[in-house]
Design a protein around this nucleic acid. Sequence first.
DNA 1: TATAATTAGGTAAACCCTAACTAACGGAGG
DNA 2: CCTCCGTTAGTTAGGGTTTACCTAATTATA
Lengths: 139, 139
Amino acid sequence: MRDREEHLLEALENLFRTRHECSCTVFSECGLSDLTVRQVAYLKIIDEQGDITFSRLAEITRNSKPTITEMINKFVRMECVYRERCPEDGRVLYIRLTDKGQKIAKAEQAALRRMIERMMDSLDDQEQELLVRILQKVR
Amino acid sequence: MRDREEHLLEALENLFRTRHECSCTVFSECGLSDLTVRQVAYLKIIDEQGDITFSRLAEITRNSKPTITEMINKFVRMECVYRERCPEDGRVLYIRLTDKGQKIAKAEQAALRRMIERMMDSLDDQEQELLVRILQKVR
DNA sequence: TATAATTAGGTAAACCCTAACTAACGGAGG
DNA sequence: CCTCCGTTAGTTAGGGTTTACCTAATTATA
């Protein structure tokens, strides 16, 4: 019982470590290893929201518009985002992610996917099925 | 096959989300939700090293001693650490974690432990054994 | 005129430094 | 044995840079 708990701890620690390593790899592949947690969060918002403008991002993040301009300028310098003018209204600019920006915004999912690949590689069909079934039970 | 991958993805996402929620809970329980990644890292070093002095922490983190003094003063204000004079040498001070500091330094382990509790609760003996065995196979 | 974004110019906090200081230790000479 | 003095641990004073924010004024388009 105690013993099983220990083993589970070890196994999960290993899982989480692996996943963390995977997302770090993605970050350093982009040459941006020292991104802030906050910066990554902003990129994720931009990714999730789709057609997002400066005003809207200011609203969501509860920052002033100049703050957003500044932030986006920094991201542009990092080659993570670019501006795209709205064809219907020339005052409006959309914030778009570059490939690099996309990659960072989706780093965690990518890490998860890599982990799953590993799992699929090291487990046979039956084991995979079993694992899914067991994990689904945990709430 | 595709399907199983999807299920695995979902199940693992759930696992990781749960774990993240657990460590966030620990942080907000301490009333220090806006700690820096760096600050948490420092608390972990203090925790791991045991009898650590200012000079030693300066050495490990490659900072000057005044920087460490400043950092520790901030932690003292946050009630995460306190100073303890060395009984053998009156010049030396040990940096000690308070309960709060301990809690933060060990937040990740705590989160993992909570997750494991959940797992133990929602799985029977046989399932637990199986899970451990399957997870151990993943490299 | 109103709205979207930018520019100019500023503040506060985080995170780092060197130089100078204080307090305690510990060995050498009286 | 005790005092003096160089050494060591940590602190204080005073500084710099960067980050992350702000308001007010400006530009361009609707």
